[in-house]
Write a protein that binds this DNA or RNA. Structure first.
Lengths: 202, 202
DNA sequence: CGTTCTATTGAGTGATCACTCAATCGTGAC
DNA sequence: GTCACGATTGAGTGATCACTCAATAGAACG
């Protein structure tokens, strides 16, 4: 090595993620990336091979960050069911001031990807599936702790739960006011907590 | 008039809607539209003013078709609550063979629109709000028919219900198998029907 | 059949797209 | 100080973008 890298790879990826999240893959031009990453086109291609490869790295970053945040939140919780409900309520009070970064980047990518963007579409699907499996694991733990009846179909519950998570972010993107968003999260939480009552009444 | 229009405006709009639904606004090029509408660029601009105006017409068409289908389905129903649940189950058995036309075009547009596409974004939001109001009306009718307790917050219920409708289409786009989609719709329906029980036990 | 008038045509506009590569620059070794 | 070599540069590539307009074509009149 005769010359140190003057660019910060982590910061560049972070900036790229923000841009792709806000504008989507196709609507983000290389000019936008040049400005956001403070890199010239040649440098971007030297560092990340292609726009698509850069997008995939940004998407992976988004996924890992979300998954890690979810996992640590669940790991510290005493009651899995309460933690899941709390996660919904937390979502409603997130910072949604940037209209472009409300909806989940994975969902935006999935709905946005053109039929020919097979790789990108596949990555978004895989990440969403991985997150749903993490959710199913938490429901599994809820069974272990007798918060849910044994034999509960955790895969189905996880699908319903993920639907709520995704939808909260979409409602935020719709510009729903904070109070209404909180009310929606509360309704969703109640549906979740309602599952626990069944154990006691059974 | 000295020369009849050789193009069918309705068919052209229908083709444009299908294309925009599948590929989104930005990813649909004028070349695509020329092929789908069998019109040359000049004719397209003479007939529809601009790509954006054409998109807005296609979006309006999508909205009106969905709203009308929903309204007639609800109008013929004896039990509003059963009809709403049935609508969810119907959704799961729709034809989702075309991956591009699974997710709701309004939601795709909302998540896809760049920050500068103010008009398009606004239209999608307005249409989604209008649909939710239609849903709230049906919940209102459910109260009239004593399927729900008086004083029920129909706006909140409608938001929850619309979330389910939107999510079913997103799950379809994720490529979820028919059986799992039906199971998800069934779970959502049960949550709805469960609301009615409260009246009888109250 | 010829004239009129408008709908349609499609090559062409400048702008922007993702991407490349010969030239330049800066650093560590000596 | 100087050299070697890899990182960085940015003007330039051909393709494609949304869009235009002078030319053309065809139906309704006398």
């Amino acid at each position: 090595m005769t010359r140190a890298r003057p660019y910060d790879r982590d910061a560049a990826l972070e900036a790229a993620m923000g841009l792709f999240w806000r504008n989507g893959y196709h609507a983000t031009s290389l000019k936008d990336l040049e400005a956001a990453l403070s890199m010239k086109p040649g440098s971007i291609y030297a560092a990340f091979t292609s726009k698509e490869a850069l997008f995939l790295l940004a998407l992976e970053r988004y996924f890992e960050r979300g998954r890690d945040a979810f996992r640590t939140k669940m790991a510290h919780a005493v009651s899995p069911l309460d933690a899941l409900a709390g996660h919904l309520r937390d979502l409603a009070s997130e910072d949604f001031s940037d209209a472009g970064q409300c909806a989940c980047m994975l969902v935006k990518t999935l709905l946005n990807a053109a039929p020919e963007d097979v790789v990108i579409r596949g990555a978004a699907q895989d990440y969403l599936d991985a997150l749903r499996e993490d959710m199913a694991d938490v429901f599994e733990r809820a069974i272990m702790r007798n918060e849910l009846p044994r034999g509960t179909d955790t895969a189905r519950l996880a699908r319903l739960y993920q639907a709520d998570v995704i939808q909260l972010r979409i409602e935020a993107q719709r510009g729903v006011a904070g109070a209404e968003l909180a009310a929606l999260a509360e309704d969703m939480s109640q549906r979740l907590i309602g599952l626990r009552a069944d154990v006691f009444t059974a």
